[in-house]
Every structure is written in C-alpha cells, then in structure tokens.
C-alpha cells in the first residue's frame, strides 16, 4: 500500500511528538518494565548454575534496563546528533577503561597479588 509522503511525515511527527497522555503512558510502561526486569534480575541470580552465566545474564538485563532509561527517560532516541557523537566516544573510552585492564588480569586469575 502506498502511503502519501505528507501522511508519512505526519505519522513520523506523531511518533516523535505524541500527545502528553501518550508520553505519560509510555513513561509508565517503561517504568513498569524496569521494575519487572529488576525482579527478573534477582530471580535469575538464584537459579543460574555457574558464575559466568550469572554474570552474563545479570549484565545483559542491566544493559537492557540502562538502554531503556537512556533511550526513553533521557530521550536519547530523539536527541541531537552531537550528543550521540559525544556518547559514542564516551562509550568507546569506557570500554577501553574497563576491558583493557580486564584482558590483562584475566591472564593472572588465581595468581596472588599484593592487594
């Protein structure tokens, strides 16, 4: 079905700027989803077999929750490109900060350190 261009623009505009009630409903749905995911995080921590699996599941759920907060509560899905560029580089440096030392210490697991 062919949608006229003006209608498409109208739909896009409505997606970006829905009515206030829609906005509030969306925020409430996100909030409830975050609460459900929190319960899921705690629940899965009791049932996973190994530490590795526990870490993977907990961090995956935390990442999903963080994405929801950043995307909707912090409006990153409709934010200006400049902010996304700043955050892109921040995430790159954050990963370097976390995983570069991590990759080194993984070679020394079980070897006593001074600390």
């Amino acid at each position: 079905m062919d949608i006229p261009f003006s209608n498409t623009l109208l739909i896009m505009n409505n997606l970006e700027k829905p009515s206030s009630t829609n906005h509030n409903n969306r925020y409430i749905i996100i909030g409830v989803s975050l609460l459900i995911l929190t319960i899921l995080t705690v629940w899965t921590s009791y049932f996973t077999a190994t530490v590795g699996v526990s870490i993977a599941i907990a961090l995956a759920i935390a990442t999903l929750k963080g994405s929801l907060v950043a995307s909707f509560f912090m409006h990153l899905i409709t934010e200006k490109k400049l902010i996304l560029v700043i955050l892109f580089f921040t995430v790159i440096f954050l990963f370097a900060l976390i995983f570069l030392p991590f990759s080194d210490t993984m070679n020394n697991v079980g070897i006593p350190n001074d600390y």
Binding site: L34, T38, T41, V42, S45, V51, S54, I55, A58, L59, I61, A62, K65, G66, V69, A70, F73, M74
Partner: peptide
Amino acid sequence: HFVDLVWIFLFPTLYLL
C-alpha cells in the same frame, strides 16, 4: 536518570554476582 542508571549496574555487580 543518570544516577538511576549507575545504580542499575551497581546493584547486580555488588549484590548478586
């Protein structure tokens, strides 16, 4: 929201893992 976001990662890291 950022403060909330930090806690979302702190909670499983310190309490569950």
